[in-house]
Computed example of a mutant assay.
Amino acid sequence: MDELKDLDSEAHKWFDDKPVAQWSWSHFKVYPKCNMLLNNVCESFNSAILDAREQPIFSMLESIKQYLMKRLQAYRDMTACKWKNLRFFPNALKLLERNVRRVSDCIPIKSDNTYYEICCFDGRQHAINLRERTCTCRKWQLSGIPCKHAISNQREEIQDYVNEYYSVETYIKVYAPAIMAFTSEMFWEVTGFNPPKPLTQMRLVGRPTLSRRRERDEPMRKTRKKAETLMLKKNQMTVRCRGCGNSGHNVRKCPKTVENR
């Protein structure tokens, strides 16, 4: 933060009223097993139901229900067909493999069968606890996947230290509940209750807003014109004439070629 203050005092001041747990890895909670600051699940779901939001209430709920039914079943089919021989799903294995490639700059020093001291080429030292599955860099606790410091001392199966949150078995349990199908309105049981009446609220003037409500300090999305003004200009190569050898024109517009014509 001191380095940020020297670089940009306004940016440093912007963090004054922001809780540290919302933007710093050092204060993130470790039980979610997620080291990401932003979660785009709600954004993805909101974009998927844009068309359904424009429909009447019953049609909207029916569209969302069918979308979720198809999506959940697609995940179950993918698990049964593609991941049946895997212990962990592929994204977790990619993250683990990426950490394996970074082990070369770590030198482990064994304290006992549980504790290790890891010396890095940048001068930092980290402490590893295999029983608690912790590292002082906190990446292992935050993500649930062993960091490069934890992998550097392993002489056994590395996947044994990956959190069970990433296992295919857990994935199957998450998507096991299914949304049950039901019939259309013509098959519903007739009751003696009065049907619901439509809303008395009048429709507001103008087009309804489709964009979500943004926070007061959230930057607005740039329009196409504004984005073009902020883009860097293309660095074009200097055109050189093959006839006279001068720059600034090609052989078709060369003065000597024009005179000869």
Rank of each mutant, 00 (worst) to 15 (best):
S24V: 04
S59Q: 15
G123E: 12
R124S: 15
L96E: 12
E43T: 02
N35T: 03
K82M: 12
M69G: 05
S9P: 04
S111H: 11
L72V: 09
W23T: 01
S47T: 03
G123T: 08
H12G: 03
S104L: 04
E43H: 10
F45Y: 13
T114K: 13
L86P: 02
S111Q: 12
M60R: 15
T114R: 15
A52Y: 06
D8I: 03
W83D: 15
E54A: 14
S63V: 02
Q66P: 02
N91R: 15
R71Q: 09
K65D: 12
L50Y: 03
Q73V: 01
A80D: 14
M69I: 14
C81I: 14
V41G: 11
D17W: 00
I107A: 09
S111A: 07
Q66K: 13
I109R: 06
I118S: 03
N113P: 03
N46V: 01
R101Q: 11
L96F: 09
A21N: 07
N85R: 09
L7K: 13
L72H: 10
C42F: 08
D16W: 00
S111G: 06
V41R: 11
Y115W: 09
H12W: 08
S44E: 13
N85C: 11
S44C: 14
I118C: 04
Q125W: 00
R98D: 13
F28L: 14
R71I: 04
C120H: 12
S104I: 02
R102H: 10
R101S: 06
D8L: 01
P32L: 09
P108W: 00
H12F: 15
L7Q: 11
Q22H: 07
W25V: 01
P56C: 08
F15L: 15
M69A: 02
N99G: 02
R87T: 05
L86K: 15
R102D: 02
W23D: 07
P108T: 09
A74K: 15
F15P: 04
S26P: 01
E62A: 06
C120S: 11
M60Y: 11
A21Q: 14
D16C: 02
N99I: 01
L95H: 13
G123C: 01
E54F: 05
L68A: 09
L37E: 05
L7R: 10
N39T: 04
K82R: 12
S59P: 01
I57G: 05
I49H: 07
K84R: 13
C106K: 06
K84H: 07
K84T: 09
A74I: 02
A74Y: 15
A52Q: 03
Y75A: 11
L50C: 02
L86T: 01
